[in-house]
Design a binder for these strands. Structure first.
Lengths: 188, 188
DNA sequence: GAGCTATATGCAAACTGTTGCATAGCATAG
DNA sequence: CTATGCTATGCAACAGTTTGCATATAGCTC
């Protein structure tokens, strides 16, 4: 299970609580691996039981107490070993492409709207990636080794968004040509 | 569940057996939605029970008998309605990017190998897409409407592969610079 | 004749992920 | 003062996917 390894990866530098990890999985590593808090809390308990993480209760004033987790020596070794194993690429599944196989004059306007939402989303994501890049990865050659790996992942994210946005323009033009002339997407 | 709708989409033009659908999901629609035969046979039975598909037993000589499925009127309507609903994009998950977050001098050579495998795979996939494009989608403007949708999906696949391949070159160069000089990926 | 591949379908268990709900204190906005 | 949202953790049910196994016939190769 890669979720476990993604969590351990997030704990390489910092000792974090489940809640903090959940937030980390909304950004950063979460760009490449999504996880809900339910998944994360469960994985943390499992990993601790396997001896790959150790935990510490941290009482807090004005907030609920929390439990922070850190990698054990065994966890670090397990993570290193995992990286050296083979990884399988989970092929991405996207409803929208299946819908494109159903394109018709009746649904072209709808698909165009969905596409516009994707463009919005990809545009925001791209802007975020670029900000992160400018702030933290402006000179990849001078980064420490591990940070260069993160830079490459970020770069893949950037390229991916750019490609999707460019494709969306072509797709939008083609969809527009399919929509019956008498009405546009927003006509009643 | 989009698998059900992907199956119905595959049955838009043809009446197919579970086995034939399984093969179809290895190519074509399967480029955007993977499914195993166990999933497909189960989905077919479910869909028939819901009245969205109807089946017919086809005895065969020299081969096991088969059951072919076709869309019912209700199935066609259900599919049309589904296309008009909202779709959620399943964020793709990829072990390899998590591994990049763990880049070190010790594992750079291994990651480079994994990357080479991906390049190989993406390259083959791209070549296949291009062949399909050249054969069946050379003039998208003159295609019937639904085929234009499929063309757009194919185009997305092409762009995606191209982007990944270009990124892989950059990544490879950076990884090479991280690998300790005294040994290459294949050194003992 | 033994083993491999292809056709054709299916069950069952295990794993992974999503959704809904629950608790509980504190802060901030209206 | 009430509603909302944040911090912080967790259970339980369901949905979806993967993996391993099972069956049966036919043709091909060694």
């Amino acid at each position: 299970m890669a979720l476990n390894h993604a969590i351990m990866t997030a704990l390489l530098d910092d000792r974090l609580s489940g809640y903090e990890l959940t937030k980390a999985f909304d950004t950063s590593l979460g760009f490449f691996w999504k996880a809900s808090h339910q998944q994360i809390y469960k994985a943390l308990r499992d990993l601790e039981q396997q001896g790959l993480l150790e935990s510490e209760d941290v009482p807090q004033a004005g907030k609920p107490d929390k439990v922070i987790y850190g990698l054990t020596e065994g966890g670090r070794e397990a993570l290193d070993a995992w990286v050296l194993g083979d990884s399988k690429a989970t092929e991405s599944k996207d409803d929208m492409f299946v819908k494109f196989y159903n394109l018709s004059a009746d649904n072209a306007a709808h698909l165009r709207e969905e596409l516009a939402q994707r463009r919005q989303h990809d545009g925001e994501r791209l802007a975020l990636y670029r900000r992160i890049r400018a702030r933290h990865y402006a000179q990849p050659e001078s980064l420490p080794v591990r940070r260069r790996g993160i830079y490459l992942a970020l770069l893949a994210g950037i390229r991916h968004c750019e490609t999707r946005l460019a494709w969306a323009e072509e797709a939008d033009a083609l969809l527009a040509s399919v929509i019956p002339e008498r009405q546009s997407a927003s006509a009643r």
